[in-house]
Design a protein around this nucleic acid. Sequence first.
RNA 1: GCAGGGGUACCCGAGUUGGUCAAAGGGGCCGGACUUAAGCUCCGGUGCUUAGUGCUUCAUGGGUUCGAAUCCCAUCCCCUGCACCA
Length: 951
Amino acid sequence: MTYDAQEIETRWQKEWSDAGVFEAEIDESKPKFYCLEMFPYPSGHMHMGHVRNYSIGDAMARFQRLMGKNVLYPMGYDSFGMPAENAAKKEGGHPHEVTHSNISSIRSDQERMGYSYDWRRFLATSDVDYYRWNQEMFLALNEKGLVERRMAPVNWCVDCDTVLANEQVKNNRCWRCGLEVVQRDMAQWFVRMTEYSDELLDELDNISFPENVKTMQRNWIGRSHGAHIDFPVVGSDSVIGAFTTRPDTIFGVTFVTLSPEHPLCEELCLGTEWEEGWRNLRDECARMSEFERINMLKEKKGVFLGKHAINPMSDEEIPIYAGNFVVSSYGTGAVMAVPGHDQRDFDFAKAYNLEIRQVLIEKGGSETSSPLKQAFEGYGPMVNSSVEGFDGLSGDEAKNSVIATLEKKNSGHGTVEYRLKDWLLSRQRFWGTPIPMIHCESCGIVPVPRENLPVELPLDVVFTEEQSGNPLESHNSFVQTSCPSCDGEAKRETDTMDTFYDSSWYFMRFCDVNNESTPFDRPAVDYWMGGGVDLYIGGIEHAVMHLLYARFFTKFTRDAGMNEVGEPFGRLVCQGMLNAPAPYCGDCNSEYHVDNFDLDCPSCGKPLSSRSAKMSKSLGNTVSPEEMISRFGADTVRLFILFGANPEAGMDWSDSALEANHRQMFSLIDGVDAALEFSDSASKIDDWLMSRLRANQKKWIEVMSDVSLREGVMISHFEMLSDWNWYLRRGGRDRITAMSFLHGWIPMLAPATPHIAEEFWKKLGREDLLAKFVIPVLQQDSNDIRVLALENYIKEIISSGRNLRALAERHSDNEITRIVIQTSPAWKSDLASEAISLHEAGFDFKEKGQSHVKSLEAFKDESTRGEVFQTWNSITIGGKKTRGRIHTWLEGERTLISEGINEVEVIKENSEFIASALEVDSIEVHSAGESEDVGGKARFAFPLEPGIAFV
RNA sequence: GCAGGGGUACCCGAGUUGGUCAAAGGGGCCGGACUUAAGCUCCGGUGCUUAGUGCUUCAUGGGUUCGAAUCCCAUCCCCUGCACCA
């Protein structure tokens, strides 16, 4: 058959679509499987990263359908966001048009790949019938007290002209544009995600995310147990609250450090000689760039603020400093400094000549009188406590007893701090969900009543390149409104929502996507989301952003009674990076654009080598999916992607590997074609083929269920083809056998290469669609192990015969025309068989093994004693331990031996095939001792390893 | 610095409850058979050696063991994330 991938693929895509085979409905009679990929931002065309993501998902969706599951496999677009807005400004259009033309382009790319989405469930978050539910749920959040508008120092990105959530700042840079963020004080909308901090953290123990994702989330939430301690300021009513995880070091506090932005700083030093120093420090910290800050980290810098505070435990007066290393946003922005037991405080104390006091000693150690060389940060018994009753306590006991005392004195309490902050939701951008709130002069901030939703984005907005800020602000008919509560003049909120809000619940909308009265009906969500999304595939880059927001949102909707589950995702698979070669300089450790191949390093001038690097526009090492599809077809691209590496592993793009996979397609086609000319001519090898099918199907289902797609494809597209070719070589030509084999095999080709599989299916004469087919799971036959082992025995004889033939030719002057095979002597087979049954019965060979065989004739004969041991079990020969053969036999081989296989008969039955495979005219076969030993080769014979001599 | 994951032959990659491991499978490369031809199929080679063996190998160095890619300890290197978080 000629292989016209374009024709075959588009034809079947149309048939599938016409038949609606991928449309899923609730069906309580079937187990469900919700297969989901992180939906894309529609930026023009599909790139290879998408192809990998969706090829994995589609293979799993198709596999689960074959296994009889009711599969929900939807696709949508995360279509709000800045790129569309920027494109609109550049081209003078409206983001709505830009977005929709991008969506249709990427959708047609996806369709061309043959992904089996239920397109009726299509959604785009920028469509009003999606984002109106964002608004409705925002009102619900508000009613639950989870929305808050407050002034806060926020991360501002000048380039994007908007604020960013903490999760969206990476290395002090905007996650999207890479520009450094600056701090601004602004009134902003927050979602109080921190209400769920504990559950978000604790539930990580019960969900099956990859370990690195869990770790990232744990670090991000950053729960620390400790104490809040109040340090009253001497001569003032003010109190400095400090958070510490180490209340057991309270007696070592020798000063207090505030962050330079701390509101008390000004109050403490205003109008004093210390004020100027503090202002300088604060300004310096505020304008520090990231680069400077990293350098500054090494140097602890601070100023005295002119006042003292009182340690509530010891009543000591200690100086108050402002220090550059204290972070204003964590804890209270104030630190009780314990230089003896905290390295940063130690460095600071050294720099400013402050007292360093040791109040803990190492367990079992003795009190040191000499000055500490560095802080001791471990745990140990308290010493030098200025109050009775603490010395000698250590660890949790010490902490608890300090906390108890503080609580009694009303000077502090045990508490928990989190690194996690509330979710800063508002954005000063146009292309997002309008926050449904109204500002009224007299009533304050009033939510838009539900019946007035949606608050729609106006379409009559003109975007120009010079424009800065949010065009909603100047859109009068949008802004001007009336107050829902007093009916007076009021203004709409012009901030829009972070787009991560859109993606925090889309997986629930997919369950009931066309619902026009609520975000989703509970029965639909409870059916599809039961146990969470069964398989969620996407990039690791969302480990703390999207995946954390979505988990929070699901907990909120659960508590609002909208759904049952509290964790949205069951199995999460983070696909690995897609790499391609890029020019690389080892000396400079940097990668360059592909234009630099064969050139010298632009920075050091040495010749560039090549190494594999993440596909990216900046390196220019991307590969266009469209080009690959048009050259090789979607099936080849899918096969390459799935076979190139397991989903989680990184994978290197390789043109030659892609071509090899294309050749594999031809091999498959040729293999299937061969079967169609068969007639009814049964032979022994038929049984073997069917046994292989059963064994392969079992293994395949096992690995595919575990998302080990590489292994799955290895079986379905490589091993089974090899089996098929072996069947043909062995003279298999039976139509009935071939038909049952192909009926078992072809469906297994469908997850990775669905189009060619469907084409094969039709060639079999099937009139139903393979896409609708459910695989009958085959029962293993009790004979399978024996049948497979016997064939393997023949393969082994041929394979060792081949190896030996080459050697024999070197040593023989005559032309080789025949071989003599001598099987193992009967006593070895008997002994082996006995050893196997004893081994299975748990016989202790080390203890009693030797005495057991000593009565054997072969043991008494010096020349065969070694062979006794080899056949028997592990034993010492010549001072060197060897293993008995029993340990190297597989299950099938042990079966053959215990059942007393007649090797001579088996070889005779197959002598013609063996002879042709080994290119000799004839084969003689004897059991050892039956005739003269040709060249003494029989002594190499063991059960299942006959001696072979070429003559 | 902290945390998580890694380092297996030319490359990718399996193997990690110790013995079935000179180490699956694939790719590449070299050579051969079949074929008008290839896109097929088949065979050989791809650490050194060899009538069926022996030697040296799984980042490095030690250790446990009759026996280690696999277990333990230390070291080096790579990736990812967080980072003065009190």
